[in-house]
Design a protein around this nucleic acid. Sequence first.
DNA 1: CACCTCTTGTTGCCTAGGCAACCGAAATTT
DNA 2: AAATTTCGGTTGCCTAGGCAACAAGAGGTG
Lengths: 219, 219
Amino acid sequence: MQNSFEILQNIDLFNGFSEEEIRESIHCLKGYTKKYQKREIIFSKAAPLPTFGIVLTGTIFLSSEDITGSTFIFTELSAGDIVGETALQFTQTGVEYDVTAATDCEILFFHKENIVQPNKVICALRARIIENLFTLLLQKNQELYHKLDIVSHKNLRNKILHYLHLQSQKSDTQHFTIPFSREELANYLIVDRSALSRELSRMQDDGLITFSRNTFQLL
Amino acid sequence: MQNSFEILQNIDLFNGFSEEEIRESIHCLKGYTKKYQKREIIFSKAAPLPTFGIVLTGTIFLSSEDITGSTFIFTELSAGDIVGETALQFTQTGVEYDVTAATDCEILFFHKENIVQPNKVICALRARIIENLFTLLLQKNQELYHKLDIVSHKNLRNKILHYLHLQSQKSDTQHFTIPFSREELANYLIVDRSALSRELSRMQDDGLITFSRNTFQLL
DNA sequence: CACCTCTTGTTGCCTAGGCAACCGAAATTT
DNA sequence: AAATTTCGGTTGCCTAGGCAACAAGAGGTG
């Protein structure tokens, strides 16, 4: 917590909260931060935790490995995003994905009980926290719809274009950097890496895009 | 509303509410029900509404059509599920999907303003409604993760198996009925209908499943 | 019952993209 | 800066599955 109050004041969970209220909320929810190094496992299907978290810095991936051993990246989260919200459900069905650090990162974890079992200990800010969590969930929903929209295309070029357009919109410029390496992008789009490279080259030849490593430009 | 209080008392939105409280909530949120016939459009990308809804009876599809004209079914919703929750976001980004009646159905709509602009008119039950909406959103999240998990498989057989297993779990039996026709299932799994039929036949030959129309049995 | 429509299965054909293998370039380590 | 590892592009091969077209059932209707 120490010196990083600017970060906390800018995340949606504490939207509209004073510094004092943030401190109080963290205390109420038994918040603590933890740092992870790139590639470290944050939590995995095997061992669901009784906590949920907010990404403070860095990037994390939610992914899953299927029977054939190929990985699928559900989504990529960064500062302000909620992770592990499935823990907040009454009917605990276990986590469906692995969470790993895509870059070095820091996460603020909270115990869930004061959210889901309010009858025990209640803190004055709980209702406002719930409202902000509500907003975070809506964002996550939106994100998941987008993801489904992207992978719903039957052909590779449209998948790629759809993804790149969304990224371009997000960064509000034609020239942008994506948070994925080539292999990661392939796992995100559920395609083969070599097929992805091949199609990207074709798209460049066709004058649709230019790119170099993970920076792209839509033409 | 009239005579269908049993339905209302069983949906999660009104979990823990007395009959009187349900009535009050509906008034506060300006709730009204509307019936749709099979195949009717409930709302579409083109015209986002300022309302969200809860399915009371029947089944609805969230779907989207891509540039090439093929339809993709995001998910299928039934009694108690929330629809149009994207309307509850501050940053209105428009609906990303079309909503259509998969069967004759009835939906309870609410105006969103008393949820997202609480400073105007406030009603005593708002906080509890938010809490229940929160739960509904968590369920929807879970549902979307499942959907992503299903379509993440690169090969058709695994997609089908994953879907059928989830359905089997839901209905808690080996012998179950799915809410999709063959073509709808193909659009849900993002595959070609004939390829789906072919693979289902092969799976039956291989002794993995038996089926007839939309009832299946896992072996 | 005859007619029509809607749904599902089947099959031939063909191509998009999966898989494997290799190579050079970039990044990281020592 | 040499050594090593990681990453991206390329290419040949091959098959899963998309597409189109047809046929057979099922169900609905007059």
